[in-house]
């Protein structure tokens, strides 16, 4: 009995991976042939990108600020408070900026995508769309994939900048570090590899956020209660996937001696 249950559980998980891969591959395949829904993509860029700006900037700013506060306590024991700009810049640009921005966007948009598409599915709007000759992968999935793929790196750049600004404000007000000392150390510490690493991750995270949201939306069952379930599952799955992906991307970059 237990073995059968375990077998069924495994089968469901394997099927989910297969369906997710199919959705992702099918969507990218459609990117190379018409019709393209450019207006829908721009609308989604506005919703996902511009709409996420306030929470991303706030998160970035306060992450940088609190990082400076915490690091200051440690650095002051060694008398190396001057390294504050370097520590904040490296932490933000390499890891915290891309990951926290992606988590914020996932929390806001993966759930939004799943609930919107899920609601359309349970009210037969997706079936109606297909009946009217529209491919839902082209109309619903691809615009969201491209919108997240294009806007997440931009959001990450802004988040990184605001994070360093937060660190600078704390450094100048609490530690009385001069602006020149903070920014010069931060600038000198950052290498092209650090920036590339930090800018590479959002592309993977962006695809993950949109694809997970679309997958759970398009696999919603059980009416309005099912929409709620899909929404929750999409946020959890996207957040976990971002953290797991972050580990493997970093591990891969170290393995190829990228930095």
């Amino acid at each position: 009995m237990l073995a059968v249950l375990f077998e069924n559980f495994l089968k469901r998980k394997v099927l989910a991976v297969q369906e997710f891969t199919h959705l992702l591959a099918g969507s990218f395949e459609r990117a190379f042939s018409p019709p393209h829904y450019v207006i829908d993509t721009l609308v989604q860029m506005d919703i996902i990108g511009f709409g996420s700006l306030p929470i991303v900037l706030l998160t970035g700013f306060f992450t940088g600020a609190v990082l400076a506060l915490q690091t200051y306590r440690t650095l002051s024991t060694f008398g190396e408070v001057g390294l504050l700009g370097e520590v904040v810049a490296l932490s933000i640009v390499r890891e915290l900026g891309p990951v926290l921005t992606a988590l914020m966007v996932a929390g806001r948009n993966s759930s939004g995508i799943a609930s919107e598409i899920g609601s359309m599915l349970v009210s037969e709007q997706v079936d109606a769309m297909r009946a009217l000759g529209t491919d839902p992968l082209r109309k619903l999935v691809l615009p969201r994939l491209f919108a997240t793929l294009l806007t997440l790196p931009l959001l990450t750049i802004l988040s990184d900048f605001f994070g360093m600004m937060g660190g600078y404000l704390v450094s100048s007000s609490t530690v009385r570090l001069s602006g020149e000392e903070y920014w010069v150390r931060a600038y000198q510490a950052l290498t092209i590899q650090d920036v590339t690493q930090g800018m590479l991750k959002p592309f993977f995270f962006g695809v993950t956020i949109a694809a997970v949201g679309c997958y759970f939306g398009l696999h919603t069952t059980g009416g309005t209660a099912g929409v709620g379930r899909s929404t929750t599952q999409s946020v959890v799955a996207a957040s976990v996937a971002i953290l797991v992906l972050d580990f493997f991307i970093t591990k891969f970059l170290i393995a190829i001696r990228f930095f």
């Binding site: 709007q125 109606a128 009946a131 491919d135």
Partner: peptide
């Protein structure tokens, strides 16, 4: 295929139970 079906569906119309209008 889905693309070929889209062409056939142009010859058909459906009215869903609740209308299924795009909100």
């Amino acid at each position: 295929s889905e693309n070929e079906l889209s062409l056939v569906r142009r010859r058909m119309g459906i009215v869903f139970q609740e209308g299924a209008l795009f909100d």
